[in-house]
């Protein structure tokens, strides 16, 4: 009965927190923490480890932004979101940035009023089946039971794919990746479908990853990227250019190992100098410190390092760079110039 006091105490805390300012950047600085929306758990992209610390590729983006804005890669509050809650969480301001392998689509950008700041992973929807089924193409899946995560574009792609190929299937909708795993492993569905990267990550968590194959068909384009709310262009710029900085750093050969040395004094390459703040005032233009990009790169390394550390070929997830290689190496990663 007397616990009404807790509400009261929270009101007090709210009153003392002071007024809320209009700009996300100022909010984040005042709070001293970045609220970053991630998945509820997808190994390699965002998942808490045994100590409860979040790790992964998407987590790396959050940390880089936090490092650029606040100078501290650990100043992030990770907010786990499901397919259902992610957009409301962002729209309502509960999170400042959503880095949850979210596909950039027209309606999300235009109708739901979000701003995708770039693409950090070029993906496509694939299928995973147990090897023993002997299936080699998605077109052989007539009558199969398919586990899908609800609230994602995969659900719509799946319907389109089966409809276009005039074959039938049984959808089994699942809320989170975690719930899908046991259903698939116990055989309650024949096929598990999600983004190819997600399939690789899920398969890596299995006891015997070798018993399962990812089918060759990729049935959709899934450009995954971090996104922010419409309307705060300054904040969108910061996020866009942090992501670009990570990509450009790889292209320019700036890594977490040599960034400290390179940013100590201006070097020969003017673009690196501008990027790292030893020349020009890019940081100031963004409303950040001059060493914003250095901090972002220090947080977890450049794009390539993040990739290799979390989802690359030497990790259990074992994704090849593929489309996600630098443009100089035949991929699609192409950061606009820092100028």
């Amino acid at each position: 009965m007397k616990k009404i006091a807790i509400l009261g105490a929270m009101t007090v805390a709210g009153l003392s927190a002071g007024a809320v300012s209009a700009s996300t950047l100022e909010d984040v600085k005042a709070r001293g923490k970045l609220n970053c929306g991630v998945t509820t758990g997808l190994v390699g992209f965002a998942a808490p480890n045994a100590n409860g610390e979040w790790e992964g590729f998407d987590v790396g983006v959050c940390r880089a932004v936090a490092a650029a804005v606040l100078g501290d890669p650990t100043a992030v509050e990770f907010v786990p979101t499901t397919g259902k809650t992610r957009f409301t969480a962002l729209a309502s301001g509960e999170i400042d940035l959503l880095a949850r392998n979210t596909t950039w689509t027209f309606s999300r950008d235009v109708d739901l009023k979000f701003e995708f700041v770039g693409i950090n992973y070029y993906d496509g929807q694939g299928f995973m089946v147990p090897k023993e089924l002997g299936v080699s193409s998605a077109k052989e899946l007539d009558g199969a039971t398919v586990c899908i995560q609800t609230g994602t574009t995969t659900e719509l792609n799946l319907a389109d794919f089966f409809r276009a190929n005039n074959i039938s299937y049984e959808p089994v909708p699942i809320e989170t990746n975690a719930e899908a795993q046991p259903l698939y492993l116990e055989g309650a569905c024949d096929v598990y479908t999600t983004d190819a990267s997600g399939l690789a990550a899920t398969r890596a968590a299995f006891e015997n990853p070798g018993d399962h194959v990812v089918l060759p068909e990729i049935i959709s384009k899934e450009p995954l990227g971090p996104l922010v709310r419409h309307g705060d262009n300054d904040w969108a710029d910061i996020n866009r250019w942090v992501l670009n900085a990570l990509i450009a750093a790889e292209e320019l050969g700036v890594t977490s190992a040599n960034v400290a040395e390179m940013s100590a004094s201006a070097g020969n390459n003017p673009e690196i100098n501008r990027l790292l703040g030893t020349e020009g005032t890019l940081g100031e233009m963004l409303g950040l410190e001059a060493d914003w990009a250095k901090n972002a790169i220090m947080a977890g390394g450049n794009y390539g390092e993040l990739f290799e550390k979390n989802i690359g070929e030497n990790t259990p997830i074992g994704l090849a760079r593929g489309l996600n290689a630098q443009w100089t190496e035949g991929g699609l990663l192409y950061s606009p110039p820092f100028r």
Partner: peptide, 23 residues
């Protein structure tokens, strides 16, 4: 159900999905 990790949320999410305790 709304992605909070109470007892049931912990069991369904992080624990049953982990590589060690799948199943």
């Amino acid at each position: 159900v709304i992605s909070m990790f109470d007892l049931v949320g912990m069991i369904r999410g992080p624990i049953l999905a982990s590589t060690e305790w799948n199943g």
